[in-house]
Amino acid sequence: MKRHVAWACLAATFAASAATAEIAPMDVKFTDTGAVTESLTGQPGDSTKGAEVAATKSMGNCVACHVVSALDAPFQGNVGPELNGAADRWDEAQLRGIVVNAKHTFEGTVMPAMYKTGPFVRPGDAYTGKAAPADLPPILTAQQVEDVVAFLMTLKEE
């Protein structure tokens, strides 16, 4: 009897970890239009944490290029489109694709891929002028991507 319980617990643990397995940056699947239909984590995003990522320089720093009226961040940029009303213009899968790697949706964009580990063109080691010493990590984690998407889904036209 104890073996059956142990196997059941092991199977349940394995099933739970498989259900929440994170999709690695190189395994993300894009549609023909650049959308990413599958959650990167299997967990819902937290819009409050997503707002923090979008407004924080050391994280996503979305406000460096985009205006987001919902954020109390100084010096918001105007390089990218305003994100006010983003949820009215794009659906969740499209927003996830844009955050992961906007080049799949907008070929000539200067927006960096937030969830990519390569291949890169001439990746550098900060501002040293030297090549990167190792593989570069993604700018955001998979859960941070989901959090930013959850935040963007709250940005509706008023």
Rank of each mutant, 00 (worst) to 15 (best):
R96A: 02
E82M: 08
A73H: 06
P119G: 07
P44Y: 02
D125T: 01
E38H: 12
P138Q: 01
G124M: 12
A16K: 13
G108E: 09
E146S: 02
E22N: 11
V28H: 08
D125E: 06
M114V: 04
M59T: 00
D46K: 01
E157P: 10
C62H: 06
Q144R: 00
A24E: 13
K156N: 12
V5T: 15
C62W: 08
P81G: 15
I23F: 07
M111W: 07
T37V: 13
V145R: 03
G45F: 07
L152N: 11
L155N: 10
C9A: 12
N61L: 05
N61I: 02
G42Q: 08
F106R: 08
L10F: 15
A35K: 08
K29A: 15
A131F: 10
E92K: 02
I23H: 06
T33M: 13
M59L: 11
A150V: 04
N101K: 08
F30M: 09
M1F: 13
V99Y: 00
E158A: 10
V63F: 14
L40D: 05
A51W: 04
V36P: 05
D125P: 01
S39G: 08
V148Q: 01
V148R: 02
D135H: 09
A132P: 00
A150R: 03
T141M: 02
V100L: 09
T56V: 02
G45K: 01
G108S: 08
Y127Q: 14
A134Y: 12
E146W: 06
A150S: 07
E157G: 12
A126Q: 09
D72S: 11
A54Q: 05
V145F: 00
F106N: 09
Y115T: 00
G118T: 11
P137D: 03
A55S: 14
D125R: 03
K156F: 11
A11C: 05
C65E: 00
E52L: 13
A21W: 11
V36T: 09
S17E: 15
M1K: 13
T154H: 11
V28G: 10
D88T: 04
M1P: 06
M1R: 13
R89V: 06
S58K: 13
R122N: 15
